[in-house]
Design a protein around this nucleic acid. Sequence first.
RNA 1: GUGGCCAUAGCUCAGCUGGUUAGAGUGCCAGGUUGUGGCCCUGGAGGUCGCGGGUUCGAAUCCCGCUGGCCACCCCA
Length: 423
Amino acid sequence: MPQIAAPRGTRDILPDEFAARRWLLDAHSAVAESFGYRGIETPIIESSELFSRGVGTDTDIVEKQMFTFDDRGGRSLTLRPEGTAGSLRAVVGAHLDQEIRPVRVHYAGPFFRAERPQAGRQHQFTQVGIECIGESSPALDAEIIEVAWQFYKALGITGIQLQVNSLGSASDRVRYRAALVAYYTPLEASLCDDCRRRLHTNPLRLLDCKRDARFVEGAPLLWDSLDRPSRDHFTAVLRDLEAAGIEAIRNDRLVRGLDYYSDTVFEFWHDVLQGAQGSLGGGGRYDGLAELLGFPATPATGYALGVERTLMVARALGTIPQAPAAADVLVCSVEPAEADAAAGIARLIRAAGTRTVLDVAERRLDRKLRGAGRIGTRVAVIVGENEVAGDSAVVRDLDGHSQQTVPIAELAATVTRILGGAS
RNA sequence: GUGGCCAUAGCUCAGCUGGUUAGAGUGCCAGGUUGUGGCCCUGGAGGUCGCGGGUUCGAAUCCCGCUGGCCACCCCA
């Protein structure tokens, strides 16, 4: 019978990697909370409509990357492809923004997109993110970027490249889109296949075509279509970033793949990862999203960062801390006759708050001690015939190569002292 | 979704133009040391050669399909 494997595009997180992820996730929570963000968790399945209306029907995500299915009542549900729409639905739906403004929240969890899998691109992937909901101040755009910046710093990741741009208001974008289409339409015959498609589906995407770069040079600039408030907003964001000591690279061709963005958009890149994998995360302002979802107009801004890709960078840079040993102490019996006594001693040591592994297998003592070295415990406690007779145990300091016979009453304290002193 | 590369012990890989018992290193288990680790020596277990079909006297090796991984593109985390 064929063995069952994890589905295509999904992976198991085994203990070594689990520790590294927890390190990253804890760092993100800690940094976000240091800015006053509070944790939230929203459903992994949502109404398909949340994304078709929120993210946009013409986006790649909604067109071809969603895992969608009908529930038993015939309602269309979707495995969430991104976190912003759900977070906004949750916060505004619960009227949290009626109590405190802005509402600052952070989250972490799995997301799903049905693209062809590749390193750093899986059907199921993980993002950490924050959303700042209820106010339109440019200071908040700068604030969320600073949170991300501090997060990378906490991970020891240097060399992050921050790109920023402004998409302007919804009406600015309509105006700009028209200007772009007017510019490209006469050129249509000379465009690459992808660009001809983009011209009709998502004209803003024309800007990041690599093949038709020569046309991009002469294309109208987004900035020229922005009205005064949007220009002022973006100028203020740039000023705040500079004041925070964050280097931002203006990229007037940066357009994000989701329809709900307006004004500030940004992305984080790192060049130790090749190609598109270097895109670590991004975000921006989405003042129009709440209305698209049927809620009262509510300005908001936020970001989402890819956990797997960030870990790839941290691994490449060697900033992931060594995973702690699984336990501090190995308790082993010498002969099967001492198994019960050894188990009791292990309980005693655990009760004192020390992580303890018990080995009462029928094998030679030297193999058990070798196992202690493999696990990485710093202390071995040996329980043999003599020790049981004397209500004691041998406590061996594996780093210090010394050992002593200790009465059971003093065992836990002795172990704690060795562990405390050795580090 | 489009195109390309790849798939052999738990892991990293070797296996020449098809040839009979598929190997190495490492890890695992055991013995050397009838109660003391990290080194060393010896032995052992462990493989439907990703899956299915085809060509052939004979397939890990050649062909086709499938599955999975990787790479580029699209796009994005």
